[in-house]
């Protein structure tokens, strides 16, 4: 049930995209109205949530100290894990937000006869979480070629780096494969590990399936069903200049629309806490000693 419901929800979204693309006015709805709505909701929801959090005070300085505190001058302080200066706090936060440092500490415990407890290193979750988030970031930034004109240099550089193996035409991007592998890992981990499956909710499967759907439709659009990139850019760039145009008959209909429906679902989905992490006011690791 916990997996089935979100799975059906994602299929339903795809079906809506399929149907709407064929109905008169449906393309405009999905290509123009929904993107604006979804984006506005995303930004509004994000700001609302941060403001909601900010409404509550932070009366106590309760960060978990993960290293030697600033104490006697001859005792070496761990300036990042137990910071006593703003700089240390910022360093701790940056490492946490950009490198998932706490997750890197992960271990796996097993109980053996005795009883004897054994702890092993377990960095797969960290590795795939990093791969997932950074390939996601690269993919989003690469898509800026469709939203900006002229195209900034960093986007072209990213595309070049990402496709440097020069496999096939249009060229193959490594991040696409890494991204799919990482989502698959994160999904399978939830399904296969009994304790993780036990704690997972539909709300955990939904984004994974949705993102998976977006990635797959995107890849199909690029390599199999062949979208007309110029027509797509005409629409997407049109969205950013508030003059969107859907070139009649030029947009490879179904899968472009699919991608739209899916991506909107993703945007409409409540602002995911991952984004909130980027707030400099991250939860526990913030206060100066």
């Amino acid at each position: 049930m916990r997996i089935l419901t979100p799975f059906i929800a994602v299929l339903a979204l795809i079906a809506v995209g399929l149907v709407a693309a064929q109905v008169p006015g449906g393309q405009a709805l999905i290509g123009i109205v929904l993107p604006y709505l979804a984006f506005a909701l995303f930004l509004g929801g994000f700001a609302y949530r941060v403001m909601q959090w900010a409404k509550s005070p932070v009366p106590f300085r309760i960060p978990t100290t993960c290293g030697q505190a600033n104490s006697l001058p001859w005792i070496k302080q761990n300036k990042i894990d137990c910071p006593s200066t703003k700089l240390g706090v910022i360093a701790r936060m940056i490492l946490e937000v950009f490198l998932f440092r706490s997750l890197f500490r992960n271990t796996k415990a097993e109980v053996h006869e005795g009883p004897k407890l054994v702890y092993g290193s377990s960095k797969f979750l960290w590795l795939f979480a990093i791969l997932f988030h950074y390939s996601f970031l690269v993919i989003v930034l690469r898509h800026m070629r469709l939203f900006m004109d002229p195209i900034p240099g960093f986007v072209a550089a990213l595309e070049f780096g990402d496709g440097f193996m020069q496999i096939g035409a249009p060229v193959f991007y490594q991040t696409n494969a890494i991204f799919l592998a990482a989502i698959a890992f994160l999904f399978l981990r939830r399904v296969m590990l009994s304790n993780i499956r036990y704690i997972s909710l539909p709300a955990d499967y939904f984004p994974l399936l949705l993102i998976f759907g977006i990635a797959v439709t995107g890849i199909l659009m690029r390599y199999v069903f062949r979208a007309d990139v110029v027509a797509i850019k005409q629409l997407t760039h049109g969205l950013t200049t508030f003059a969107p145009t859907i070139a009649a008959g030029q947009i490879s209909p179904i899968f472009f629309i699919l991608q739209q429906a899916d991506a909107h679902g993703r945007c409409l989905h409540e602002p995911h806490p991952e984004h909130d992490q980027q707030q400099p006011d991250g939860p526990a690791h913030q206060s100066v000693e």
């Binding site: 959090w53 509550s56 106590f60 955990d204 939860p283």
Partner: peptide, 18 residues
């Protein structure tokens, strides 16, 4: 309303199981 920590801890878990 009194503790931001509680509010954020209520919202942000993704049940990664670490």
């Amino acid at each position: 309303d009194k503790f931001r920590s509680l509010k954020i801890f209520m919202d942000c878990c993704v049940r990664c199981g670490a």
